[in-house]
Simulated assay, not measured.
Amino acid sequence: MPTIDIPKSNQTVNVQIVDTTLRIKDGPLAAFLSPAIEGQEKLNVGEFGFLITHTDLSSAGSDDKTVRKVLFDLGPPKDWKAHLPEPVVKRMSTWEDYGAVITIDKDISEVLQDGGVELDTIEALIWSHTHWDHMGRPSLFPPSVDLIVGPSIISKFSPGYPENPASPFLTREFSGRKVTELSFDSSTLSIGGMKAIDFFNDGSFYILDAPGHAVGHINALARTTASPNGENDTFIFLGADSYHIDSQLRPNAHTPLPKSIEIPRLSPCPCPGEIFEHIHPLPLGGNPSLTPFQIIHEKSVAVDVPSAREVINKIQAFDADERVFVINAHEWSYYDVLEIFPESANGWRRKGWKEKARWRFLAGFQGAVELAFTDRKLWRGSL
């Protein structure tokens, strides 16, 4: 089992998983991963943002506790065709031309306010990257709310569109507020092989360098519980768009395919793990029980495919650690396992979220499972 050296700390943050209300039905799966598998030929996802609340332990018991809130990822603008640069709207409209359905009920600012969070209590918005469905509309937040972006975002995309025709965001999203660009160049801290920045300077929340998917792409690691010796601490890893579906993450050498899998919505249930070895599209002479079902391919939207694949390899080690709950922005098979904002996610381990969610993505391969079970040549003696 891989060892992840996470510095010890008695300070935690509260993590709330926010439903940004984005739903994509029948999106282009091939833009992100391949190959398609029977039953999962299209991308059908939603999107999460994450509200992180830090309460300084040194102020515990005080009437004036020091509380800081940051929002990691904002989802898309509700009226995205009116609030994104024209080239981005034109590109995304081609999805609809090919049958994709994109719906967004609320801006994340509305979701937070509906849940009782005043926008002026948020210290900063953190973009994991500058794709249309992660930037939201910072302009809907008070000017007192800072914006934090990953490496090279300011130099490449500032001040915004239309002044910078290559920018994926409008100028107004930068203007009138403090914008800070993170740099990992001077960081001496590494967690799980990923360069890290200790955001609150107390070991409660780390920003991680996660290049490959997009310019300035970052992940995060939140400490959700702390124990006296640190051995029983728990964490939530925020994977942003490092991968889109768990089929890109599992199975692997650290987390092999189990012998029997019991997943709601999958028939038969329980299902023998062996059947997924037969429908596995990737291994040619390899071991299907140790190889993810799908990969980031050369023609995907990733700006640096080798780096993007390497980040997934590193996330696999976090995922194999029972102290860490790994969740990306779009893994919608998790939705009925999670407790969504305004509820807290900090009790994830006690509630068994990791075990319940780990193989849920396999239900998306129902069509391939049905074909395998009707193929008597493959399944002589197994039925």
Rank of each mutant, 00 (worst) to 15 (best):
T121D: 10
K90F: 05
M135V: 09
N10F: 02
N44M: 08
A36I: 03
D26N: 14
D107W: 06
D146I: 02
F32D: 04
Q16A: 01
M135Q: 10
K90A: 14
S58N: 13
V111G: 00
R68E: 15
V67T: 14
K25Y: 14
F32W: 11
S109H: 04
I148L: 04
P28H: 04
D63K: 15
I24E: 07
S128G: 12
D97H: 14
L71A: 08
D63M: 03
D114N: 12
H129D: 14
K65F: 00
T21A: 02
L51S: 08
D146G: 06
T55N: 08
S109Y: 02
S62M: 03
T130R: 02
T20K: 01
K25C: 02
E123I: 08
W127Q: 07
G75Q: 08
L43R: 15
G61V: 14
A82N: 11
L125V: 06
V117P: 07
G115P: 12
P76E: 10
E123M: 10
S62T: 14
L43T: 12
L22C: 10
H129G: 05
T53P: 07
K78H: 01
L74D: 05
V67N: 04
L29V: 03
D73Y: 11
L51H: 05
T12R: 01
I24S: 05
E96D: 09
S59M: 02
S128K: 04
P138F: 12
P87F: 04
K65T: 10
D73P: 02
L71P: 06
G75R: 13
E86T: 14
G136P: 10
G46S: 12
G49I: 01
G136C: 04
K81H: 05
L43D: 12
S34I: 02
T66C: 00
G136Y: 00
I102Y: 07
D105N: 06
M92C: 04
D56L: 08
E118W: 01
S139V: 06
A124K: 07
G61C: 09
Q40S: 11
R23L: 05
M92L: 15
P28K: 00
V88W: 10
F50K: 01
R91A: 15
F32E: 03
T12P: 00
W127E: 04
Q113F: 01
V88H: 11
I122R: 05
N14M: 00
D107A: 08
T21Y: 00
M92S: 06
D19Q: 00
I126R: 07
S62E: 10
V89H: 10
I108F: 05
M135T: 11
H131F: 12
G75C: 08
A36M: 06
P143E: 03
F50Y: 14
K25Q: 13
D114R: 09
F50I: 02
F32S: 03
R68L: 10
D114Y: 06
K78I: 00
D107L: 05
K106N: 13
A30Q: 09
F50N: 05
Q16C: 01
H131I: 11
E38I: 13
